[in-house]
Amino acid sequence: MQVDTHRNSLLTPSALAGGTIRQSAAIAGRQNMLDRKVAGFPDQPLISAQPLRYNVQLNQQLTHVQQADHFLQRTEKQVLQLNHAITRRAPIAEVQGQAEALQQLLTFRQQLSGGTVSRQLQVSLEARPQVKFTLRDGNTLLNNPQPEVLTFSLAGQKREVSAASLPAASSARQALLTLNQALGKWGIYGSLDSQRQVSFQVAEQDWARIDQHLSVKGGGERYPENQFFPVKPQMENGLEDDVQRFLKTPSVSTARQLLPCLDNALTTLSQQRRGLQRSKAAVQMRIESMATFSGSDTAQAASRQLAQQLNHESFAQLTQALAAQANVHCATVRNVLAQSQLSARAA
């Protein structure tokens, strides 16, 4: 569980929405929390003061949702401010300042979002964010009818090799399937869009190695033989690239050219935040389903019963009994206890 204690730091995203809670305040407020339904997402003192309330998987899901939502919220606000500055024809210095603030957010996207948001501002809570890219002459690579054996090489800390044998007169899908089998060992996966244009994707953390060290050797048809040829993948354009292009040559005309990119980004951000709201609702339902007590009365009654049992019974015997029950199905334990109660009443 990641808990932020520096809300004003750009490099440290706030995982919770309410700021720092002192431990003494959290302990003093526990009774009040039992008297009301959890209203925040999630209830901050329960996470900061009682980190073991939820299992590890749910804790990770909570953290990812919070980090993604916090980053998207900040990014959406900054995109709106930049869009507004351009549309009202603010001085170019003001527009440039808003663009630099947005660029700083996008530059530290991975840290601020906890690795949950991709370059295309797509949220990925379960899997790692992907980078989409194309290969030079990628469509020619798939549509060449000649057979050829392609040997791919990925250098870096160590050199790895993988080969793909493309049969004669193979379709684009068949050739792509063969390429995916060869490149899949490095996490590279290709697909065809509705216009039958090929694109590839790889985990963002692996992109730097793929970008700099992927090469291929062919048989003279698609690629030269006897030597490895750099593949030079081209990363798909993102908002970060558009803003950086404007900052290189800030002017009224380049600012106006940025407006369509900002509109598309706002649409994406809105869609992704709606998806996060659904994730929040699902997680909140899980939290509520895990609630042990419905109110303070039941919690106090259970505490009194436990205290009485600890006072009158041997703690070692109770621990041994609980350990034994933990290895037995809960339905079996209930049946045994029910039979014991019936026997006691009959006696």
Rank of each mutant, 00 (worst) to 15 (best):
M33E: 15
M33Q: 12
L34Y: 07
D35K: 12
D35L: 10
K37V: 09
A39I: 10
G40N: 09
F41K: 02
P42Y: 15
Q44F: 04
Q44E: 13
P45M: 13
L46I: 09
I47W: 03
I47S: 02
I47Y: 01
A49Y: 07
P51E: 06
N55W: 01
N55H: 07
V56S: 13
V56K: 12
V56N: 11
V56C: 00
Q57K: 04
Q57R: 08
L58K: 05
N59P: 00
N59Q: 14
Q60G: 08
Q60C: 01
Q66W: 06
Q67H: 11
Q67V: 07
A68V: 04
A68D: 13
H70Y: 11
H70N: 14
F71K: 00
F71E: 03
Q73T: 15
Q73Y: 08
R74G: 12
Q78E: 15
V79G: 01
V79Q: 00
L80N: 11
Q81S: 12
Q81Y: 10
Q81R: 12
L82H: 03
L82C: 05
A85T: 08
A85K: 06
A85R: 04
R88G: 05
R89E: 10
R89S: 09
A90T: 02
P91F: 04
P91V: 02
P91A: 06
P91L: 03
I92G: 01
A93W: 09
A93D: 15
E94M: 09
E94A: 10
V95K: 08
Q96K: 13
Q96R: 15
Q98H: 14
Q98L: 05
A99R: 04
E100Y: 04
E100F: 02
E100C: 00
L102Y: 11
L102T: 05
L102P: 02
Q103K: 03
Q103M: 03
Q103T: 01
F108D: 14
R109Q: 14
R109N: 15
Q110L: 08
Q110A: 12
Q110P: 00
Q111V: 05
Q111T: 03
Q111A: 12
L112H: 07
L112I: 13
S113F: 01
S113C: 00
G115E: 04
G115L: 01
T116R: 12
V117H: 09
V117T: 09
V117D: 13
S118L: 09
Q122G: 05
V123P: 01
L125G: 04
E126W: 06
E126I: 10
A127L: 10
R128V: 13
R128S: 14
R128T: 15
P129N: 13
Q130K: 11
V131T: 14
V131G: 03
F133N: 04
T134I: 07
T134A: 13
R136T: 15
R136Y: 11
R136C: 02
D137Y: 12
D137N: 14
D137H: 13
D137W: 09
T140F: 06
L141I: 01
L141K: 03
L141S: 00
L141T: 02
N143P: 01
N144A: 13
N144R: 08
Q146H: 12
P147F: 10
P147G: 10
V149F: 05
V149C: 00
T151M: 05
F152P: 04
F152K: 11
F152S: 10
L154C: 08
A155W: 09
G156M: 10
Q157L: 13
Q157G: 13
Q157H: 12
K158Q: 15
